[in-house]
Design a protein around this nucleic acid. Structure first.
Lengths: 104, 104
DNA sequence: CTGACATTTCAAGAGGAATTGAATTGTGAA
DNA sequence: TTCACAATTCAATTCCTCTTGAAATGTCAG
């Protein structure tokens, strides 16, 4: 992960619709949510939800799996963790002041 | 911190110039860096560096203090930590899979 | 095969973000 | 005061992102 890639990933998080998508998917847990359910959950049209889902998918924050007529999305925690690690460790050089960010 | 604000803050991180600025400021430590030094460090014109610094400053990730003819910038770790906490705790509901992100 | 449903893709337009170089502001030295 | 320096601000341009609604794709039931 370099600055270029990290910037793209942060860009995928820089939208409140997309943050709501992630939140909804976290709430849904391992079962995930169908695209239509996500659209309804965040109050967006199917087309708009699909646009944001493809951004999140390209970033690797979510993955889709076809299930009958639906596409079921799940969140990828590892990918989110990798971005956090970049900012906290690589970028911020493991600065002690940031160690407390995880509430540990 | 809500999704709207968090999205804005992630937007401030969604640029490789600005990530390099943060990295440079972290390396500089408490002493901080003058705007001109930052511009040189990231290989940008003074005007371009200033543009990105103002974005980071509005987001609260950096703060400036005048020192003679220079403006000295420092990174705000608390602000970065607050955003991380939002994603990890608020948005991601403290999901166990993300607990490992700080390498603790 | 036909029809209905779930979702994505596409084209067009609106709005915001980034880059450039010139002009401006603020600060200090002589 | 005058000059030089440090940095920001501005205007113009370009580029990218987002939104919308219509059209296309893929999937299944009858």
């Amino acid at each position: 992960m370099n600055e270029q890639e990290a910037a793209t990933l942060f860009g995928a998080l820089s939208n409140d619709d997309r943050l709501r998508v992630i939140r909804a998917l976290v709430r849904a847990g391992p079962a995930g949510l169908a695209a239509g359910e996500i659209a309804e959950a965040i109050g967006a049209s199917p087309s708009r939800a699909s646009f944001h889902l493809s951004t999140l998918s390209e970033a690797g924050f979510v993955h889709a799996e076809r299930q009958a007529r639906s596409l079921r999305y799940r969140v990828d925690f590892d990918r989110i963790g990798a971005l956090m690690r970049f900012l906290l460790e690589e970028c911020c050089a493991g600065h002690p002041d940031l160690r407390s960010c995880c509430g540990s």
